[in-house]
Each structure stands twice: as C-alpha cells, then as structure tokens.
Nucleic acid binder design. Structure first.
Lengths: 203, 203
DNA sequence: ATTCAAACTTGCATTTAGTGCAATCTTTGC
DNA sequence: GCAAAGATTGCACTAAATGCAAGTTTGAAT
C-alpha cells in the first residue's frame, strides 16, 4: 500500500506516446503476419483487431483503411549513421549505401518473407497501389536527408530529383534481389547506382 | 424482313470490345468529374453508376474498386510516334521528349484539372496510393518501348532501370509544372532529363 | 489521496463497398 | 432463325469504414 506511488512513473517522456507506438507496431505485425499466411481477402479487420487484442473500432483509430496497417514504418536510420551521411564528403551514392547498410542487412534475413509479400501485392490491385506508396515514403526520407547534406530546402530541385532517382534505384535493386537468389541486396543496390551515370550514354 | 441483315454488322473487328471500351471510358469520365467537384468521400459508386447510365453491379464488372475508375488509361502513343521512337538514332531522352510531345501538349490544356486532382489525392490516403500506381503504369509502357528500341527483353536490366528513371523524372517534372505556373510541361521535362547525367557529380 | 481534464478505448448504429449467384437480355456465329 | 457465348442486372449478403456517445485510463494539479 505504502511504497512510493510516485515510483510507478518517475519521469515519463510521454508514456502515452510510447503506448500508442507500441500498439501500432503490434497491429502492424499481426496484420502482416495474418495477410502473408492467409491472403488479403481472407483476413478481416475484425480478425486483426482480435489478434492484436483491441476492438475493431480501435483498429480504425490507428489506421484509416485496412491496407494501411500493412505499410511498414519509416526506415528509421540510426542517428549516428544519419549524422555521418549528412556531413559525409564522399560521393553521395557511396555514402548512401553506407547509410542503408544496416537496414539492408536486416532485409537480407527477411528475403523469403519479403518475397511473399511482394508476390501477394503483385496479385492484388489494392496492394499494388499501397506498395508504390511505400517507396514514395522512403523517397521523402531520402529527400530530407539530402536537403540537410546539401544545405538546401528539401523541396529544392536538386534534392528532390536526387531522392526520386535514388528511391527508384532502390526499388529496382530490390526487385532484382528478390527475383534472383544470387546477389546480396547491397550488391544489387551498388550495381544499380553505379549504372546510373552512364545510363543514357550512346544508344 | 429480307434486307441484308448482315448489313447491320458487315465487318466488326470486335464490336463487343468497342462497346466495352466505350462504357469504360464513360465511367472513367463520369467518375473523375464527380470526384473533382465533390471529393472522393461524397461520391458513391451508386452515383457514378447512375450518372454513367449503368447499374451499380455493372460498375463493379468494369472496376474492382471505386478508386480504380479514377486511373487514367495508358498513355497510348500514336503508332507513328512509337515507330519513330523505336527506330530512333538520337539520344534516348531527346527522342523520348518527341514521343511524349503530343501527350504533353494535351496536358498543357488540362493544367487546372490536373492540379485539382493532384490536390485531392494529396489529401486522401487511398488516392495517394493510386496516384503512385499510375506512374508505375507509365513506367511499364516506357519499359516495353525501350526494350523494343534496344532489342532486349523488356525485363532486361537496362530497359528496366531506364524506364524507372524516366518515369520518376516524368513525375518530378510534372510536379514542378503543376506548382509553378511558369514553365511548360515539356520544358520542365527537358530540364529534368538534362540534369540527370550530372546529378551526382561532386558533392 | 482526491479530483479533474484530456486522451484513449469501446459498443452501437448506419452507410457504403464489394462479391456471388441466378435470371434476363444481347450479340454473334452458324 | 437458333443456339451458345457474353454482357447486364437485381438481390442477398459480408465486410469496410465512420459518427456518436458512453465508459476508461492517464498525468498532473491541488
């Protein structure tokens, strides 16, 4: 009874925020798991809610439509890597690969799952749309970082086009990596980025 | 009675096909018109069907989900322009601008409408996803053409990456064109494509 | 501790999206 | 003209999605 009740919550840098993020993450995990095993049409929002331990209504407080729960969160680069990239002096594509290294390594372990998800979204028109959307999110992340590095507003021409080209390269590399079992993701990306400068040379 | 009943349909290179395409086009027109004036949430599939003179059930025979009716058809380049591009000897970006010239001119007249649509799809998550999807369709078209021109399978590395970079450039140019009232669409695209070769030079 | 307001969750009712099925009408080949 | 294939429709039904109001939890103030 006594104890120090104040100990239950000494200093909370937004406990609510944390809880929200945690449930959001739970929903995402549950949703993708269910969909990868049963397919989008055989998974209802109600199933997801139940599995995640929340009410159906709450599901729609977190996500505005079912498929949104399948969109992964931002790449979320570690601050150290971000700092290194922003103040990097090398060639941008090279520094970018370094920035991505950690994420790419994680993806390496998930190749099978990723392949399944990509397969499903190839089949389902709604998931196709959503998939495109995801890469556009990554693009926004890249644009912000490039803006910082170049000391320009993120909506300036240069970072905008750079981010667009990079995210599309990322996507192309990812597709190649998924198809062929040969390359590592990082190798695929390096190759793709290296091709860019001479892409339109000669016919 | 007699007459030549065969006269009603002398040589039909698929009349059914034509009818289908015509109604599809009608639905698309009606849907985009309704949505641009009232917003996506205030337009029901029933309204669209009614306005297009078909039953609700038939709407879903043509499109699998509401937003799909808002996706414009393929760019549909005129055969002459296609042939010119495929056998073109100039630089690919230059020849590409020629190929697109006609479409870009049409878009020039529609700038206001296009801006409205882009605005709506910025706001609505589902339309965001669909919008991304559209550019990916264009990319597939580009890839097929580039494959032909280069004499490679369309899923070969080179045409794949080229098409990806081109479609993303197209998108970036289009965004610029929509925002600023200054440039013509074609000028914006030329500038963007011209920037590509030196994009990552120096820091 | 008590209290209070803001944030969060939930149930309920309702509208709309979307699908399967069977009946009808239309086209086309013969 | 007739039969088969194709397209349209109505109907019934499941699931997605939203508004509202009532309940619960949380964080901070006294």
């Amino acid at each position: 009874m006594h104890g120090n009740t104040s100990n239950d919550s000494p200093q909370k840098p937004d406990l609510r925020e944390r809880r929200r993020l945690r449930t959001m993450e739970t929903i995402r995990k549950v949703a993708t798991a269910l969909v990868t095993t049963h397919g989008l049409d055989h998974v209802t929002t109600e199933m997801i809610a139940e599995e995640a331990g929340i009410s159906l209504r709450t599901f729609f407080n977190y996500f505005t439509y079912k498929e949104e729960a399948l969109i992964p969160p931002s790449l979320g680069f570690p601050p150290k890597a971000v700092a290194a990239f922003v103040s990097g002096k090398g060639l941008i594509p090279e520094d970018l690969v370094l920035l991505l290294e950690e994420r790419l390594a994680e993806m390496e372990l998930e190749r099978k799952n990723i392949r399944v998800i990509m397969g499903l979204s190839d089949a389902h028109p709604r998931l196709q749309s959503v998939r495109e959307h995801i890469f556009r999110q990554y693009e926004a992340e890249f644009r912000a970082l490039l803006g910082q590095r170049l000391g320009l507003a993120p909506d300036h021409h240069r970072p905008t086009l750079m981010a667009a080209v990079i995210s599309t390269s990322f996507r192309v590399a990812m597709c190649r990596w998924i198809e062929g079992d040969s390359h590592s993701m990082i190798a695929a990306l390096r190759t793709t980025l290296a091709t860019l400068p001479t892409l339109f040379d000669e016919t």
